[in-house]
Design a protein around this nucleic acid. Structure first.
Lengths: 222, 222
DNA sequence: CCATAAAATAAGTGATTACTCACTATACAA
DNA sequence: TTGTATAGTGAGTAATCACTTATTTTATGG
């Protein structure tokens, strides 16, 4: 995290374009909470430790967040929207506008775009992944955003390339799963399992794109 | 879980071939612990709730397990060995004995074998996935078993098929990641994300195998 | 039936938990 | 300066935590 933390928080919490302002101590609380939650998990983190790490009285936390869970949600919920934002933006119709003539061009664009995002918000993503299974509110958000919007959008895109004969004619959701499994598998390996290994990202991505595209290519009729 | 629970526990904990015996209450403790851990996560689970659900006094738990963490490890640790067992068994050399002539035959065998396992031990697998990030002991076991043994073994297998010209000549670890991403992605979608959806497993597996094999096929020179 | 050990229990233990509340400090407009 | 709202504090709260211990129940073999 080389960039100023305040800016990072602003961006994540979507506050720079609203009239809401965070005090200095509030920022320190969020910063400390992210650290502690990411390290020990939500349930094993104590508000006293967060307060201590933030250099703040424990009561101050509850001035701004009604409960400990409130603190968690205020960190993690905005990430969910941002995580899937690019799939919902209007200019994502580039795909259908044939800006990405080939499925592999589309793939490269998505991968690079989301890699930037993952690198920037890694600790919060970690928290999100860990806590979703235990918090129904987060599960609903996930269902609504990811299952609801992204899947539908992605399905249209896949069907577009299927009509063009670039992708084999199998259920779109299977295509999505195969594509997403590889991209997420790469990110997880790259940033969670073996982040210290030396990585040639571009080469790895190219191999992956080739793998996906050829795996999804229709049978050659000749 | 249709089968008798005691048998399931015996099999998991590897106790049927040793002279260690579990009392009736011990089995109930493990059963309750698996349920509670899987539902709320280790840190958010209390020994009192486990005891209550097991129909046992809280002290009984600590008769058999020194600490709460001890209880967790006694459930989760043996799973890790079992999870990767087939990759270490001697008869896994079938591959190198050319029992599986093609990579896709090998894939099908692995997928079916591990699907059985996943279905049977789903709750404990859930616990394992959730807790590994927070317990160094589990991380070390994972590193030693998975990274150490399975990866090495798998690498040999991949190189075998590469020499035969069935798999494109790229780093074996990339081949492994692409293969594993898809298999795990399928299992996670199948059993965790959308277990209630109707699944045609065989069809889905065949599509996946086709995808992997064609994605990894060498360039056609003609 | 008795003796002995293991199993199980109920009632604690101090420590820690998330959260409250009465109070003080600070900022800013009138 | 004074008034008012917000930010921040820290001592306190009851509840719950993992774990202990003294005692009782159960199982087992002779």
């Amino acid at each position: 995290m080389a960039e100023p933390f305040e800016q990072w928080v602003d961006e994540l919490l979507n506050l720079n374009d609203e009239d809401v302002k965070l005090t200095e101590k509030q920022i320190k609380i969020i910063q400390a909470a992210v650290e502690v939650f990411a390290e020990k998990g939500y349930a094993a983190s104590s508000t006293s430790e967060i307060a201590q790490k933030a250099g703040v009285a424990e009561g101050t936390i509850f001035r701004h967040y009604k409960t400990k869970k409130d603190l968690l949600l205020s960190i993690v919920a905005p990430l969910m929207s941002k995580l899937i934002a690019p799939f919902i933006l209007k200019d994502f119709n580039k795909v259908l506008d044939a800006t990405y003539a080939r499925y592999e061009d589309f793939l490269r664009a998505v991968i690079h775009n989301r890699q930037e995002f993952v690198r920037k918000h890694l600790p919060v993503i970690k928290i999100l992944l860990q806590e979703v299974p235990f918090h129904p509110e987060l599960q609903e958000q996930f269902k609504e955003h990811v299952a609801g919007k992204v899947l539908e959008r992605f399905k249209n895109i896949v069907e577009h390339y299927q009509k063009e004969g670039q992708i084999i004619d199998i259920p779109p959701y299977s295509v999505i799963r195969m594509t997403a499994s590889n991209i997420l598998g790469f990110f997880i390996t790259r940033y969670l399992l073996a982040p210290d290994q030396e990585w040639d990202d571009e080469r790895e991505i190219e191999m992956m794109v080739r793998f996906i595209v050829r795996g999804l290519a229709p049978e050659e009729s000749r």
